[in-house]
Design a protein around this nucleic acid. Structure first.
Lengths: 346, 346
DNA sequence: TTGAAAGCGTTACCAC
DNA sequence: GTGGTAACGCTTTCAA
């Protein structure tokens, strides 16, 4: 499809005639100020004038130009959102929450993704600010806290996955550590002692918290951790698959796997399937995140649910409230273990 | 978390001082016009002036106000995207394509979702237009072609999943019918005769095309279709699950299931798992879409791949080219059957 | 209640 | 090359 060819065709008649408030005013025989006042309810407008203005407005199909409004008022009524990947079920769950939170506020979301790359993230935020968003929501990522704090001098920020707080900046986290403790605790309670963990990226805060939860819970139960059972993943299915292959190739003995996130669990589960190792009969698996699809894996995955949607609502509301709009309180539930069918009692 | 409480704290010192081009001009001892010319390379600027301007600009950390630019130039360099759900792996794959296509163009994406509801979709497009996007990309949805055509009088549109064409509007589809034919053909070639289909929503064009492919392919092979084997789904996992339950409860005989999309296949697969029916040993499944996760289901799903990413690239490029930016051609590959492990030869 | 007019921060035309 | 200045479409004093 030679896209370029369409150009000439489409460029002509590109001038959609836009009605301006000024035109409405003169057609209605009043001043622009009056029309503006009518539109915004800024002041009382006499009944007869209001009538004609109303009529003219829909005769002319007048729609205010938000650009001009924004320029004048210094607010675009737009919230920038820095996500990491448009295709991530994890982030998008939160995104839906944000979307719902701002739905009726007149704010729109300007979404950009940083792909877990600090430089790219900073560049996107810069872009967002350049576009004069009223605030930006940052979903985790790899920028330093200081970078974000600096940005918050230029624009209000709410950061998800950070505990930083500042003048015009709010940050909040879910307790990944506790979630991981719960998961491992559960495994232990089900009689598992040799529990492998497939970690997330080493530079990822959440991944580290989950790993810490693993270590500490094992320690708490005086279970010695076998370093051979902690193997690196990457929060992707492929990493989980590779990790299990590696475990198996090295003939490690283990009865359960704690996958640092659900995607990892999916990969792990496939690796097991390939070798005819049954889940949970032979090996138990617990994941982390509770992606929607974890309800439909075979077997359905026991996993730690992150209240991402609620977190999204929280993010949206916090932003709105920083922007001066009264918001109802939101309580983000804590992480909770969802017991399904991928763990067996031994 | 009582979001409202933060307000007072954050509202003060909300006035970030923004440097304007005018300030740069006077600090550099030149006219605004000159600064503008320098910034945009619109005309030659003498070396000494350029030097001072450059210096002043980064002393003052000047960043042009895009709002003012947009107002003046009549272009926001923003493309509106109407998707259906922020959380859909299907749409988001295309979204990533769009994102990549416009990445270096200076355009940003303003994304809104219509949730498959014609009214909401129209409302969003209206919002998008109100925000003066330069063009809008519409990803399927339930608006009528005429509605879209009407919108295209106000703003350039590229519509994915529609075959309509207009003055300032381009539409293109993937060939769902052919894809479905390929899927069913494959099943038949593998020896299946009693093939159930779990359909998508009846009012969904793609779903209907897939159903038609099912009927026609069976007919082509002189296989009589048993109406009991066509059961309704909803493009969600739950629908697939229910459908299979229904099939099984009615004691229908069948050796294969054609799921109208991958989510449906996941649900179907779980229903089978619950009854200890093996896939593909007892029942074969083929899906449609080839979501990323279909590579990691157990067994990995045989499915029809939709080149959504490439379609996204196409959408982005078509948009850009309608907007007057020369674009490289893109060829969107056709649908193709990805044979994995969920179908058995009988 | 209403209007005139001064911006908001740019760009671009018209002179010089 | 460069400066003055009129827009772009709106909101909001300030007067009347």
């Amino acid at each position: 499809m030679a896209a370029a060819r369409h150009r000439d065709h489409f460029m002509k008649n590109a001038e959609s005639t836009t009605t301006t408030l000024y035109q409405v005013a003169s057609a209605a025989g009043v001043s622009p100020a009056t029309v503006s006042r009518f539109l915004n309810g800024t002041a009382k407008v006499s009944d007869d004038k209001r009538k004609t203005i109303e009529r003219v407005i829909d005769e002319l199909q007048y729609k205010p130009n938000r650009l001009a409004q924004s320029l004048k008022m210094g607010s675009t009524r737009t919230i920038g959102v820095l996500t990491q990947a448009l295709e991530s079920g994890y982030f998008n769950r939160a995104m839906v929450g944000i979307e719902d939170a701002v739905k009726d506020s007149g704010y729109a979301l300007l979404i950009m993704s940083g792909h877990w790359h600090a430089d790219e993230e900073a560049e996107r935020v810069e872009l967002l600010i350049g576009r004069r968003v009223d605030g930006v929501a940052i979903l985790t990522g790899n920028m330093s806290d200081q970078q974000i704090l600096d940005f918050s001098k230029r624009v209000p920020i709410v950061a998800f996955g950070r505990k930083i707080k500042g003048e015009r900046m709010l940050g909040f986290c879910l307790d990944n550590y506790r979630g991981a403790c719960d998961a491992v605790e559960f495994l232990v309670k089900q009689g598992h002692r040799r529990i492998a963990i497939i970690t997330g990226p080493a530079d990822h805060g959440d991944a580290r918290a989950r790993l810490a939860g693993y270590y500490d819970t094992l320690a708490k139960h005086r279970i010695e951790v076998d370093p051979n059972l902690v193997v690196a993943g990457d929060f992707q299915e492929s990493g989980g698959l590779l990790a299990v292959n590696q475990l198996l190739a090295a003939h490690q003995r283990f009865t359960a796997i704690f996958a640092s996130n659900d995607l990892t669990a999916y990969g792990a589960r496939l690796a097991l399937y390939r070798r005819n190792i049954r889940v949970p009969d032979d090996i138990s698996i617990v994941g982390f995140d509770d992606l929607h699809s974890s309800m439909y894996t075979t077997p359905p995955l026991t996993t730690v649910r992150q209240p991402l949607y609620e977190a999204g609502i929280g993010i949206g509301r916090m932003m709105l409230s920083m922007l001066g709009h009264e918001q109802p309180p939101v309580d983000v539930p804590s992480l909770s273990l969802i017991v399904r069918e991928s763990v067996r009692l031994i």
